[in-house]
Write a protein that binds this DNA or RNA. Structure first.
Length: 546
RNA sequence: GCGCCUGUAGCUCAGGGGAUAGAGCAUCUGCCUUCUAAGCAGGUGGCCGGGGGUUCGAAUCCCUCCAGGCGCGCCA
Protein backbone atom coordinates (compact mmCIF):
# COMPACT_ATOMS: atom_id res chain seq x y z
CA UNK A 1 0.00 0.00 0.00
CA UNK A 2 1.44 3.36 -1.08
CA UNK A 3 0.51 5.64 1.79
CA UNK A 4 2.34 8.65 0.42
CA UNK A 5 0.31 8.57 -2.77
CA UNK A 6 -2.86 8.04 -0.79
CA UNK A 7 -2.18 10.90 1.62
CA UNK A 8 -1.13 13.27 -1.11
CA UNK A 9 -4.36 12.51 -2.89
CA UNK A 10 -6.37 13.10 0.30
CA UNK A 11 -4.62 16.42 0.90
CA UNK A 12 -5.23 17.54 -2.66
CA UNK A 13 -8.87 16.62 -2.24
CA UNK A 14 -9.03 18.78 0.87
CA UNK A 15 -7.43 21.69 -0.95
CA UNK A 16 -9.98 21.37 -3.72
CA UNK A 17 -12.88 21.28 -1.27
CA UNK A 18 -11.55 24.39 0.40
CA UNK A 19 -11.20 26.10 -2.97
CA UNK A 20 -7.53 26.67 -2.38
CA UNK A 21 -5.70 26.88 -5.64
CA UNK A 22 -2.65 24.99 -4.52
CA UNK A 23 -1.22 21.57 -5.22
CA UNK A 24 0.83 19.37 -2.97
CA UNK A 25 4.34 18.50 -3.99
CA UNK A 26 5.72 15.00 -3.82
CA UNK A 27 8.09 15.73 -0.93
CA UNK A 28 5.41 17.13 1.33
CA UNK A 29 4.25 13.74 2.49
CA UNK A 30 7.15 11.72 3.77
CA UNK A 31 8.16 9.18 6.36
CA UNK A 32 8.23 10.64 9.82
CA UNK A 33 11.63 11.50 11.15
CA UNK A 34 11.13 9.54 14.32
CA UNK A 35 8.71 6.97 15.64
CA UNK A 36 7.15 9.41 18.06
CA UNK A 37 6.03 11.47 15.05
CA UNK A 38 4.12 8.51 13.66
CA UNK A 39 4.62 6.74 10.35
CA UNK A 40 4.06 9.55 7.86
CA UNK A 41 4.09 13.31 8.16
CA UNK A 42 3.17 16.24 6.00
CA UNK A 43 4.44 19.80 5.96
CA UNK A 44 1.49 21.08 3.96
CA UNK A 45 0.33 23.47 6.73
CA UNK A 46 3.76 25.09 6.80
CA UNK A 47 3.56 25.64 3.08
CA UNK A 48 0.05 27.06 3.27
CA UNK A 49 0.74 29.52 6.07
CA UNK A 50 1.63 32.41 3.81
CA UNK A 51 -1.30 32.00 1.43
CA UNK A 52 -3.92 31.50 4.10
CA UNK A 53 -2.36 34.07 6.41
CA UNK A 54 -2.78 31.75 9.38
CA UNK A 55 -0.31 30.00 11.58
CA UNK A 56 0.80 26.51 10.47
CA UNK A 57 -0.54 25.08 13.72
CA UNK A 58 -4.01 26.51 13.09
CA UNK A 59 -4.04 25.20 9.56
CA UNK A 60 -2.92 21.75 10.68
CA UNK A 61 -5.78 21.72 13.18
CA UNK A 62 -8.31 22.62 10.52
CA UNK A 63 -7.10 19.93 8.09
CA UNK A 64 -7.04 17.01 10.52
CA UNK A 65 -10.82 16.53 10.94
CA UNK A 66 -11.19 16.11 7.18
CA UNK A 67 -8.72 13.27 7.02
CA UNK A 68 -10.33 10.44 8.96
CA UNK A 69 -9.33 7.11 7.55
CA UNK A 70 -9.45 3.50 8.61
CA UNK A 71 -5.74 3.14 7.91
CA UNK A 72 -4.77 5.41 10.75
CA UNK A 73 -5.18 5.12 14.47
CA UNK A 74 -4.30 8.73 15.07
CA UNK A 75 -3.86 11.82 12.93
CA UNK A 76 -2.22 14.53 14.94
CA UNK A 77 -1.71 18.22 14.31
CA UNK A 78 1.35 19.60 16.04
CA UNK A 79 1.54 23.18 17.33
CA UNK A 80 4.41 23.93 14.95
CA UNK A 81 2.39 22.89 11.93
CA UNK A 82 3.07 19.31 11.05
CA UNK A 83 0.44 16.64 10.62
CA UNK A 84 1.56 13.21 11.79
CA UNK A 85 -0.12 10.00 10.68
CA UNK A 86 -0.02 6.90 12.87
CA UNK A 87 -0.92 3.63 11.16
CA UNK A 88 -3.58 1.61 12.94
CA UNK A 89 -2.36 -1.61 14.61
CA UNK A 90 -5.22 -3.61 13.08
CA UNK A 91 -4.37 -2.24 9.68
CA UNK A 92 -0.71 -3.12 10.18
CA UNK A 93 -1.65 -6.70 10.96
CA UNK A 94 -3.80 -6.77 7.87
CA UNK A 95 -0.76 -5.62 5.88
CA UNK A 96 1.28 -8.43 7.41
CA UNK A 97 -1.30 -10.95 6.30
CA UNK A 98 -1.23 -9.56 2.78
CA UNK A 99 2.56 -9.63 2.74
CA UNK A 100 2.45 -13.24 3.83
CA UNK A 101 -0.10 -14.27 1.24
CA UNK A 102 1.71 -12.62 -1.68
CA UNK A 103 4.92 -10.73 -0.86
CA UNK A 104 5.50 -9.57 -4.42
CA UNK A 105 2.00 -8.16 -4.72
CA UNK A 106 2.43 -6.53 -1.33
CA UNK A 107 5.69 -4.83 -2.27
CA UNK A 108 4.80 -3.64 -5.74
CA UNK A 109 2.14 -2.00 -7.84
CA UNK A 110 0.89 -2.78 -11.29
CA UNK A 111 2.27 0.50 -12.64
CA UNK A 112 3.84 -1.17 -15.64
CA UNK A 113 1.12 -3.60 -16.59
CA UNK A 114 0.97 -4.00 -20.33
CA UNK A 115 4.03 -1.82 -20.86
CA UNK A 116 7.34 -2.77 -22.41
CA UNK A 117 10.72 -1.53 -21.32
CA UNK A 118 14.13 -2.05 -22.88
CA UNK A 119 17.11 -1.67 -20.64
CA UNK A 120 20.62 -1.71 -22.02
CA UNK A 121 23.60 -2.03 -19.73
CA UNK A 122 27.26 -2.97 -19.46
CA UNK A 123 27.77 -3.12 -23.26
CA UNK A 124 31.51 -2.95 -22.65
CA UNK A 125 33.90 -3.22 -25.54
CA UNK A 126 34.90 -6.81 -26.03
CA UNK A 127 38.52 -5.79 -26.46
CA UNK A 128 39.49 -7.06 -23.03
CA UNK A 129 38.11 -8.60 -19.86
CA UNK A 130 35.40 -6.70 -18.07
CA UNK A 131 37.03 -4.55 -15.42
CA UNK A 132 36.03 -3.44 -11.97
CA UNK A 133 35.32 -0.06 -13.53
CA UNK A 134 33.08 -0.94 -16.45
CA UNK A 135 31.28 -3.69 -14.51
CA UNK A 136 29.51 -1.09 -12.41
CA UNK A 137 26.71 -0.81 -14.90
CA UNK A 138 26.02 -4.53 -14.41
CA UNK A 139 24.51 -4.70 -10.94
CA UNK A 140 22.91 -1.28 -11.43
CA UNK A 141 21.29 -2.21 -14.74
CA UNK A 142 20.34 -5.68 -13.61
CA UNK A 143 18.67 -4.39 -10.44
CA UNK A 144 16.84 -1.64 -12.30
CA UNK A 145 15.61 -4.27 -14.74
CA UNK A 146 14.48 -6.39 -11.76
CA UNK A 147 12.57 -3.40 -10.45
CA UNK A 148 10.80 -2.89 -13.76
CA UNK A 149 9.81 -6.53 -13.73
CA UNK A 150 8.57 -6.23 -10.16
CA UNK A 151 6.41 -3.26 -11.13
CA UNK A 152 4.77 -5.21 -13.89
CA UNK A 153 6.70 -4.19 -16.99
CA UNK A 154 7.62 -6.61 -19.69
CA UNK A 155 11.37 -6.17 -19.40
CA UNK A 156 14.02 -6.80 -22.03
CA UNK A 157 17.68 -6.75 -21.09
CA UNK A 158 20.08 -5.93 -23.86
CA UNK A 159 23.83 -5.93 -24.35
CA UNK A 160 25.15 -3.85 -27.26
CA UNK A 161 28.28 -5.18 -28.93
CA UNK A 162 30.55 -2.79 -30.79
CA UNK A 163 31.79 -5.38 -33.22
CA UNK A 164 32.70 -3.01 -36.02
CA UNK A 165 35.10 -0.50 -34.62
CA UNK A 166 38.82 -0.01 -34.97
CA UNK A 167 39.38 -1.27 -31.44
CA UNK A 168 38.46 -4.79 -32.44
CA UNK A 169 40.96 -4.56 -35.28
CA UNK A 170 43.54 -3.39 -32.77
CA UNK A 171 42.81 -6.43 -30.64
CA UNK A 172 43.14 -8.72 -33.65
CA UNK A 173 46.46 -7.12 -34.57
CA UNK A 174 47.66 -7.79 -31.05
CA UNK A 175 46.54 -11.41 -31.16
CA UNK A 176 48.15 -11.82 -34.57
CA UNK A 177 51.39 -10.54 -33.14
CA UNK A 178 51.38 -13.23 -30.45
CA UNK A 179 50.55 -15.94 -32.97
CA UNK A 180 53.43 -14.89 -35.17
CA UNK A 181 55.71 -14.75 -32.17
CA UNK A 182 54.70 -18.22 -31.12
CA UNK A 183 55.01 -19.81 -34.55
CA UNK A 184 57.90 -17.85 -36.02
CA UNK A 185 59.81 -16.91 -32.92
CA UNK A 186 59.70 -13.27 -33.89
CA UNK A 187 57.21 -10.68 -35.04
CA UNK A 188 56.98 -7.01 -35.77
CA UNK A 189 55.07 -5.13 -33.04
CA UNK A 190 51.98 -3.62 -34.62
CA UNK A 191 51.48 0.12 -34.37
CA UNK A 192 48.40 -0.34 -32.23
CA UNK A 193 48.71 -2.94 -29.55
CA UNK A 194 47.00 -4.18 -26.40
CA UNK A 195 49.62 -5.35 -23.93
CA UNK A 196 47.38 -7.36 -21.55
CA UNK A 197 48.01 -11.03 -20.79
CA UNK A 198 44.58 -11.94 -22.04
CA UNK A 199 45.76 -11.21 -25.58
CA UNK A 200 48.22 -14.08 -25.35
CA UNK A 201 45.44 -16.20 -23.94
CA UNK A 202 43.36 -15.59 -27.04
CA UNK A 203 46.33 -16.40 -29.29
CA UNK A 204 46.97 -19.65 -27.48
CA UNK A 205 43.32 -20.63 -27.50
CA UNK A 206 43.21 -19.96 -31.21
CA UNK A 207 46.24 -22.11 -31.94
CA UNK A 208 44.92 -24.92 -29.75
CA UNK A 209 41.75 -25.15 -31.76
CA UNK A 210 43.75 -26.48 -34.67
CA UNK A 211 42.70 -23.66 -36.95
CA UNK A 212 44.18 -23.45 -40.42
CA UNK A 213 47.32 -21.53 -39.94
CA UNK A 214 46.55 -17.87 -40.25
CA UNK A 215 50.10 -17.31 -41.34
CA UNK A 216 49.29 -18.64 -44.80
CA UNK A 217 46.67 -15.96 -45.29
CA UNK A 218 47.44 -12.45 -46.36
CA UNK A 219 47.48 -9.99 -43.51
CA UNK A 220 44.09 -8.45 -44.22
CA UNK A 221 42.34 -11.82 -44.27
CA UNK A 222 44.17 -12.94 -41.15
CA UNK A 223 43.09 -9.87 -39.25
CA UNK A 224 39.48 -10.26 -40.34
CA UNK A 225 39.50 -13.87 -39.21
CA UNK A 226 41.14 -13.05 -35.89
CA UNK A 227 38.81 -10.11 -35.28
CA UNK A 228 35.89 -12.48 -35.44
CA UNK A 229 37.57 -15.07 -33.26
CA UNK A 230 38.88 -12.66 -30.62
CA UNK A 231 35.54 -10.91 -30.37
CA UNK A 232 33.62 -14.10 -29.71
CA UNK A 233 36.30 -15.30 -27.31
CA UNK A 234 36.17 -12.12 -25.25
CA UNK A 235 32.39 -11.98 -25.31
CA UNK A 236 32.21 -15.50 -23.88
CA UNK A 237 34.58 -14.48 -21.09
CA UNK A 238 32.65 -11.31 -20.33
CA UNK A 239 29.37 -13.18 -20.12
CA UNK A 240 30.95 -15.83 -17.89
CA UNK A 241 32.14 -13.14 -15.47
CA UNK A 242 28.75 -11.46 -15.51
CA UNK A 243 27.09 -14.82 -14.97
CA UNK A 244 28.89 -15.06 -11.62
CA UNK A 245 27.16 -11.84 -10.62
CA UNK A 246 23.85 -13.35 -11.77
CA UNK A 247 23.68 -10.89 -14.63
CA UNK A 248 22.01 -12.21 -17.75
CA UNK A 249 20.65 -10.64 -20.89
CA UNK A 250 17.58 -11.49 -22.87
CA UNK A 251 19.29 -10.39 -26.05
CA UNK A 252 22.48 -9.17 -27.64
CA UNK A 253 22.46 -6.46 -30.27
CA UNK A 254 25.44 -6.27 -32.60
CA UNK A 255 26.48 -3.02 -34.18
CA UNK A 256 27.13 -4.91 -37.42
CA UNK A 257 23.37 -5.42 -37.75
CA UNK A 258 23.08 -1.70 -38.35
CA UNK A 259 25.58 -1.74 -41.17
CA UNK A 260 23.26 -3.50 -43.55
CA UNK A 261 21.70 -0.31 -44.83
CA UNK A 262 19.92 0.83 -41.69
CA UNK A 263 22.70 3.17 -40.64
CA UNK A 264 22.90 4.75 -44.09
CA UNK A 265 19.14 5.20 -44.03
CA UNK A 266 19.33 6.89 -40.63
CA UNK A 267 21.92 9.33 -41.88
CA UNK A 268 19.76 9.99 -44.91
CA UNK A 269 16.85 10.82 -42.63
CA UNK A 270 18.99 13.35 -40.80
CA UNK A 271 20.16 14.76 -44.11
CA UNK A 272 16.54 15.05 -45.29
CA UNK A 273 15.91 17.21 -42.25
CA UNK A 274 18.71 19.46 -43.36
CA UNK A 275 20.75 18.61 -40.29
CA UNK A 276 23.93 17.50 -42.02
CA UNK A 277 26.56 19.07 -44.23
CA UNK A 278 29.75 18.10 -46.03
CA UNK A 279 33.04 19.56 -44.93
CA UNK A 280 36.62 18.47 -45.59
CA UNK A 281 35.36 15.24 -47.04
CA UNK A 282 33.37 14.26 -43.98
CA UNK A 283 29.64 14.39 -43.26
CA UNK A 284 28.77 16.46 -40.19
CA UNK A 285 25.74 16.59 -37.92
CA UNK A 286 24.70 20.17 -37.26
CA UNK A 287 24.24 19.54 -33.52
CA UNK A 288 25.24 23.10 -32.52
CA UNK A 289 21.83 24.07 -33.87
CA UNK A 290 20.41 22.43 -30.75
CA UNK A 291 22.93 23.85 -28.32
CA UNK A 292 25.77 21.36 -28.61
CA UNK A 293 29.34 22.62 -28.12
CA UNK A 294 30.31 21.68 -31.60
CA UNK A 295 29.12 19.85 -34.66
CA UNK A 296 29.82 16.14 -34.85
CA UNK A 297 31.16 13.96 -37.61
CA UNK A 298 28.83 11.19 -38.74
CA UNK A 299 30.77 9.86 -41.73
CA UNK A 300 34.53 10.09 -41.85
CA UNK A 301 36.59 11.11 -44.82
CA UNK A 302 36.89 7.44 -45.76
CA UNK A 303 33.11 7.07 -45.60
CA UNK A 304 33.04 4.92 -42.46
CA UNK A 305 30.51 5.86 -39.78
CA UNK A 306 31.54 7.21 -36.38
CA UNK A 307 30.45 5.73 -33.08
CA UNK A 308 27.87 8.50 -32.77
CA UNK A 309 26.35 7.65 -36.14
CA UNK A 310 26.10 4.04 -35.04
CA UNK A 311 24.55 4.95 -31.71
CA UNK A 312 21.98 7.25 -33.27
CA UNK A 313 20.98 4.42 -35.58
CA UNK A 314 20.93 1.96 -32.69
CA UNK A 315 18.62 4.20 -30.70
CA UNK A 316 16.41 4.85 -33.67
CA UNK A 317 16.12 1.09 -33.87
CA UNK A 318 15.25 0.87 -30.18
CA UNK A 319 12.49 3.44 -30.65
CA UNK A 320 11.13 1.68 -33.71
CA UNK A 321 10.88 -1.56 -31.78
CA UNK A 322 8.04 0.14 -29.90
CA UNK A 323 8.95 0.22 -26.23
CA UNK A 324 7.12 2.39 -23.74
CA UNK A 325 10.36 3.12 -22.05
CA UNK A 326 14.01 2.85 -23.00
CA UNK A 327 16.71 2.91 -20.35
CA UNK A 328 20.43 3.34 -21.02
CA UNK A 329 22.94 2.70 -18.27
CA UNK A 330 26.07 4.64 -19.16
CA UNK A 331 29.45 5.24 -17.64
CA UNK A 332 30.45 8.84 -17.01
CA UNK A 333 33.06 8.53 -19.75
CA UNK A 334 30.31 8.38 -22.36
CA UNK A 335 30.10 11.88 -23.69
CA UNK A 336 27.72 11.87 -26.62
CA UNK A 337 24.43 12.00 -24.77
CA UNK A 338 23.57 15.48 -25.97
CA UNK A 339 24.04 15.01 -29.72
CA UNK A 340 22.34 11.62 -29.50
CA UNK A 341 19.23 13.11 -27.94
CA UNK A 342 19.22 15.98 -30.42
CA UNK A 343 19.30 13.55 -33.30
CA UNK A 344 16.49 11.46 -31.83
CA UNK A 345 14.33 14.53 -31.35
CA UNK A 346 14.99 15.49 -34.92
CA UNK A 347 13.96 12.04 -36.08
CA UNK A 348 10.63 12.61 -34.38
CA UNK A 349 11.00 10.40 -31.33
CA UNK A 350 9.73 11.23 -27.87
CA UNK A 351 12.86 11.92 -25.82
CA UNK A 352 10.86 11.52 -22.62
CA UNK A 353 10.75 7.80 -23.24
CA UNK A 354 14.53 7.57 -23.07
CA UNK A 355 16.02 7.59 -19.60
CA UNK A 356 19.76 7.69 -19.19
CA UNK A 357 21.33 6.62 -15.92
CA UNK A 358 24.91 7.84 -15.86
CA UNK A 359 27.07 6.22 -13.24
CA UNK A 360 30.34 7.73 -12.10
CA UNK A 361 33.55 5.85 -12.53
CA UNK A 362 35.20 3.48 -10.11
CA UNK A 363 38.45 4.42 -8.45
CA UNK A 364 40.66 1.81 -6.90
CA UNK A 365 43.14 2.56 -4.18
CA UNK A 366 45.99 0.62 -2.72
CA UNK A 367 47.83 1.97 0.31
CA UNK A 368 46.24 5.34 -0.28
CA UNK A 369 47.49 5.49 -3.85
CA UNK A 370 45.03 5.45 -6.69
CA UNK A 371 45.50 2.64 -9.18
CA UNK A 372 45.04 4.02 -12.64
CA UNK A 373 43.21 1.61 -14.87
CA UNK A 374 43.59 1.46 -18.57
CA UNK A 375 43.17 -1.25 -21.16
CA UNK A 376 45.70 0.35 -23.42
CA UNK A 377 48.45 0.12 -20.82
CA UNK A 378 47.25 -3.27 -19.63
CA UNK A 379 46.90 -2.01 -16.05
CA UNK A 380 43.51 -2.86 -14.64
CA UNK A 381 41.80 -5.01 -12.08
CA UNK A 382 39.42 -7.39 -13.74
CA UNK A 383 35.99 -8.12 -12.39
CA UNK A 384 37.09 -11.75 -12.26
CA UNK A 385 39.88 -10.99 -9.77
CA UNK A 386 37.47 -9.10 -7.55
CA UNK A 387 34.83 -11.83 -7.59
CA UNK A 388 37.45 -14.48 -6.86
CA UNK A 389 38.65 -12.51 -3.88
CA UNK A 390 35.46 -11.40 -2.20
CA UNK A 391 32.68 -13.43 -3.77
CA UNK A 392 29.74 -12.35 -5.90
CA UNK A 393 27.48 -11.17 -3.08
CA UNK A 394 29.93 -8.69 -1.60
CA UNK A 395 30.89 -7.55 -5.09
CA UNK A 396 27.30 -6.82 -6.04
CA UNK A 397 26.60 -5.22 -2.71
CA UNK A 398 29.57 -2.86 -2.98
CA UNK A 399 28.36 -1.71 -6.38
CA UNK A 400 24.86 -1.21 -5.02
CA UNK A 401 25.56 0.67 -1.80
CA UNK A 402 26.37 3.93 -3.48
CA UNK A 403 24.23 6.22 -5.51
CA UNK A 404 25.08 5.90 -9.20
CA UNK A 405 26.10 9.54 -9.43
CA UNK A 406 28.53 9.07 -6.59
CA UNK A 407 32.12 8.11 -7.36
CA UNK A 408 32.82 4.59 -6.20
CA UNK A 409 36.09 4.41 -4.30
CA UNK A 410 37.42 1.35 -2.68
CA UNK A 411 40.64 0.13 -1.36
CA UNK A 412 41.89 -3.11 -2.86
CA UNK A 413 43.42 -4.29 0.41
CA UNK A 414 40.40 -3.85 2.65
CA UNK A 415 38.09 -5.23 0.03
CA UNK A 416 40.25 -8.24 -0.68
CA UNK A 417 40.46 -9.15 2.99
CA UNK A 418 36.88 -10.45 2.93
CA UNK A 419 36.00 -8.27 5.83
CA UNK A 420 33.25 -9.88 7.93
CA UNK A 421 32.14 -6.39 8.90
CA UNK A 422 30.95 -5.71 5.38
CA UNK A 423 27.38 -4.37 5.54
CA UNK A 424 26.13 -7.12 3.24
CA UNK A 425 26.79 -9.58 6.07
CA UNK A 426 24.85 -7.41 8.47
CA UNK A 427 21.75 -7.77 6.34
CA UNK A 428 22.35 -11.39 5.43
CA UNK A 429 22.95 -12.24 9.07
CA UNK A 430 19.53 -10.91 9.96
CA UNK A 431 18.13 -13.24 7.33
CA UNK A 432 20.00 -16.31 8.62
CA UNK A 433 18.86 -15.51 12.13
CA UNK A 434 15.28 -15.64 10.87
CA UNK A 435 15.96 -18.97 9.24
CA UNK A 436 17.55 -20.19 12.49
CA UNK A 437 14.43 -19.27 14.41
CA UNK A 438 12.23 -21.14 11.96
CA UNK A 439 14.50 -24.20 12.16
CA UNK A 440 14.29 -24.10 15.93
CA UNK A 441 10.52 -23.78 15.81
CA UNK A 442 10.23 -26.76 13.51
CA UNK A 443 12.57 -28.81 15.72
CA UNK A 444 10.41 -28.04 18.73
CA UNK A 445 7.46 -29.45 16.84
CA UNK A 446 5.67 -26.18 16.07
CA UNK A 447 3.47 -25.98 13.00
CA UNK A 448 4.89 -23.33 10.69
CA UNK A 449 1.94 -23.39 8.34
CA UNK A 450 -0.48 -22.43 11.08
CA UNK A 451 -1.68 -18.85 10.88
CA UNK A 452 -3.48 -17.73 14.05
CA UNK A 453 -6.82 -15.97 13.67
CA UNK A 454 -5.70 -13.35 16.12
CA UNK A 455 -2.20 -11.99 16.03
CA UNK A 456 -1.04 -10.07 19.05
CA UNK A 457 2.00 -7.85 19.15
CA UNK A 458 2.64 -5.84 22.27
CA UNK A 459 6.39 -5.28 22.36
CA UNK A 460 7.73 -2.04 20.93
CA UNK A 461 10.36 -3.98 18.98
CA UNK A 462 7.63 -6.03 17.31
CA UNK A 463 5.55 -3.07 16.25
CA UNK A 464 8.61 -1.19 15.02
CA UNK A 465 9.48 -4.13 12.79
CA UNK A 466 5.93 -4.39 11.49
CA UNK A 467 5.84 -0.69 10.75
CA UNK A 468 9.12 -0.93 8.84
CA UNK A 469 7.60 -3.71 6.76
CA UNK A 470 4.50 -1.62 6.09
CA UNK A 471 6.66 1.27 4.87
CA UNK A 472 8.54 -0.85 2.35
CA UNK A 473 6.17 -0.48 -0.61
CA UNK A 474 6.60 3.30 -0.44
CA UNK A 475 10.36 2.93 -0.15
CA UNK A 476 10.61 0.52 -3.05
CA UNK A 477 8.45 2.71 -5.23
CA UNK A 478 10.73 5.62 -4.48
CA UNK A 479 13.81 3.58 -5.45
CA UNK A 480 12.01 2.63 -8.65
CA UNK A 481 10.98 6.18 -9.53
CA UNK A 482 14.52 7.38 -9.07
CA UNK A 483 16.03 4.29 -10.70
CA UNK A 484 18.23 4.11 -7.62
CA UNK A 485 18.97 0.56 -6.54
CA UNK A 486 21.19 1.75 -3.70
CA UNK A 487 18.08 2.81 -1.81
CA UNK A 488 17.01 -0.84 -1.63
CA UNK A 489 20.39 -1.70 -0.17
CA UNK A 490 19.88 0.95 2.48
CA UNK A 491 16.39 -0.40 3.22
CA UNK A 492 17.80 -3.87 3.75
CA UNK A 493 20.38 -2.60 6.21
CA UNK A 494 17.66 -0.65 7.98
CA UNK A 495 15.34 -3.64 8.08
CA UNK A 496 18.21 -5.79 9.35
CA UNK A 497 18.86 -3.28 12.09
CA UNK A 498 15.22 -3.30 13.20
CA UNK A 499 15.15 -7.08 13.11
CA UNK A 500 18.31 -7.49 15.20
CA UNK A 501 16.68 -5.26 17.78
CA UNK A 502 13.56 -7.41 17.75
CA UNK A 503 15.73 -10.50 18.05
CA UNK A 504 17.36 -9.17 21.21
CA UNK A 505 14.09 -8.16 22.81
CA UNK A 506 11.66 -10.83 21.78
CA UNK A 507 12.07 -14.52 22.32
CA UNK A 508 10.26 -16.14 19.40
CA UNK A 509 10.25 -19.87 20.02
CA UNK A 510 8.79 -20.20 23.48
CA UNK A 511 6.70 -23.24 24.34
CA UNK A 512 5.57 -21.62 27.59
CA UNK A 513 3.80 -18.85 25.66
CA UNK A 514 2.30 -20.54 22.61
CA UNK A 515 0.17 -17.57 21.51
CA UNK A 516 2.96 -15.03 21.58
CA UNK A 517 5.19 -17.60 19.96
CA UNK A 518 2.79 -18.24 17.07
CA UNK A 519 2.38 -14.54 16.37
CA UNK A 520 6.12 -13.99 16.34
CA UNK A 521 6.80 -17.00 14.15
CA UNK A 522 4.30 -15.56 11.71
CA UNK A 523 6.09 -12.23 11.78
CA UNK A 524 9.46 -13.88 11.18
CA UNK A 525 8.02 -15.84 8.28
CA UNK A 526 6.71 -12.68 6.68
CA UNK A 527 10.09 -11.07 7.14
CA UNK A 528 11.82 -14.00 5.46
CA UNK A 529 9.54 -13.62 2.45
CA UNK A 530 10.05 -9.87 2.27
CA UNK A 531 13.80 -10.05 2.66
CA UNK A 532 14.02 -12.80 0.08
CA UNK A 533 12.21 -10.57 -2.39
CA UNK A 534 14.52 -7.64 -1.65
CA UNK A 535 17.69 -9.69 -1.89
CA UNK A 536 16.42 -11.12 -5.15
CA UNK A 537 15.95 -7.62 -6.50
CA UNK A 538 19.57 -6.90 -5.67
CA UNK A 539 20.69 -10.25 -7.06
CA UNK A 540 22.23 -11.24 -3.75
CA UNK A 541 22.07 -14.70 -2.23
CA UNK A 542 19.95 -15.52 0.83
CA UNK A 543 22.03 -18.01 2.85
CA UNK A 544 20.37 -20.44 5.29
CA UNK A 545 23.33 -20.19 7.64
CA UNK A 546 26.45 -18.10 8.00
C1' G B 1 38.92 27.19 -20.84
C1' C B 2 33.89 24.64 -21.50
C1' G B 3 30.35 20.58 -20.01
C1' C B 4 28.76 16.62 -16.47
C1' C B 5 29.47 14.47 -11.39
C1' U B 6 31.18 15.02 -6.35
C1' G B 7 32.60 17.58 -1.41
C1' U B 8 28.13 15.65 5.20
C1' A B 9 31.39 11.92 11.83
C1' G B 10 38.33 9.28 11.75
C1' C B 11 36.70 5.88 7.04
C1' U B 12 32.75 4.45 3.32
C1' C B 13 28.33 6.77 2.46
C1' A B 14 22.45 7.86 3.23
C1' G B 15 19.54 12.16 3.50
C1' G B 16 12.42 14.81 -1.84
C1' G B 17 12.81 23.29 1.33
C1' G B 18 10.71 21.78 7.21
C1' A B 19 10.87 18.95 13.79
C1' U B 20 17.10 17.71 17.71
C1' A B 21 21.56 16.17 10.60
C1' G B 22 21.55 9.76 10.17
C1' A B 23 23.54 4.47 9.04
C1' G B 24 27.48 0.88 8.62
C1' C B 25 32.66 0.50 9.83
C1' A B 26 36.55 2.26 13.30
C1' U B 27 37.23 3.61 18.60
C1' C B 28 35.82 3.29 24.13
C1' U B 29 32.36 0.82 27.98
C1' G B 30 28.98 -2.97 29.13
C1' C B 31 25.98 -7.68 27.55
C1' C B 32 26.69 -14.95 25.49
C1' U B 33 23.30 -21.40 30.99
C1' U B 34 17.97 -19.02 26.43
C1' C B 35 16.08 -19.20 18.49
C1' U B 36 23.99 -18.07 15.55
C1' A B 37 27.65 -12.22 19.76
C1' A B 38 28.83 -11.69 11.74
C1' G B 39 24.40 -9.32 17.24
C1' C B 40 22.50 -5.62 21.02
C1' A B 41 22.78 -1.30 24.56
C1' G B 42 25.50 3.05 25.71
C1' G B 43 29.72 6.73 24.98
C1' U B 44 33.18 9.58 21.84
C1' G B 45 32.95 11.86 17.27
C1' G B 46 29.77 17.33 12.70
C1' C B 47 31.06 25.71 11.26
C1' C B 48 26.92 19.42 6.04
C1' G B 49 34.18 22.50 1.51
C1' G B 50 34.28 28.56 1.98
C1' G B 51 31.42 33.00 1.04
C1' G B 52 27.02 35.40 -0.64
C1' G B 53 21.70 35.16 -2.05
C1' U B 54 16.30 33.44 -2.23
C1' U B 55 12.85 31.93 1.86
C1' C B 56 9.00 32.32 7.76
C1' G B 57 12.66 28.16 7.28
C1' A B 58 18.59 25.78 3.38
C1' A B 59 22.97 19.97 3.99
C1' U B 60 18.89 20.45 0.24
C1' C B 61 17.37 25.75 -4.44
C1' C B 62 20.43 30.02 -7.00
C1' C B 63 25.26 32.67 -7.66
C1' U B 64 30.44 32.58 -6.71
C1' C B 65 35.06 30.75 -5.09
C1' C B 66 38.12 26.45 -3.53
C1' A B 67 39.23 21.12 -4.00
C1' G B 68 38.73 16.25 -6.52
C1' G B 69 36.86 12.88 -10.64
C1' C B 70 35.28 12.25 -15.78
C1' G B 71 34.59 14.10 -20.59
C1' C B 72 35.67 17.80 -24.39
C1' G B 73 38.75 12.47 -31.23
C1' C B 74 37.16 11.89 -38.43
C1' C B 75 38.48 6.51 -30.68
C1' A B 76 34.58 3.29 -29.01
Amino acid sequence: MLYKEYLQHELDKWLQEQNIDFHTQPGWVDFSKELSFGDYSTTLPLNLAKILKKSPGQIANSIVPALSSAFFEKIEATPNGYINFFLHPDHLIQQLREANADPIHFLSTTTGAGKKVLIEYVSCNPTGPITVANARGGPIGDTIANMYTLFGYHTEREFYVNDMGSKIRKLAESVFYHIQLKLNGSAALPEEFYPGEYVQEIAEAYLQEDKPSVLTLDRQQAITLLSQYSLEFMLRKIFLDLDDLHIHFTQIFRESELHKGYLAETIQLLTDKGATYQQEGALWFRSTQFGDDKDRVLLRKDGSPTYLAGDISYHRNKFERGYDRIVDIWGADQSHQKPLKFALRLLGFDEEKLLTVVFQLVHLFKDGQELKMSKSTGAFISLRELIDEIGPDVTRFIYLTRSHDQHLNFDVETTKSHDPKNPVFYAQYAFTRCKGILREARDKGLDLTFIPDTLTFTDQAETDLIRKIAHLPDKLFRAFELLSPHLITMDLIDLGNTFHLFYEHCRVVDLQNPETSQSRIFLVQVLVKIMTALFQLLGIDTPERM
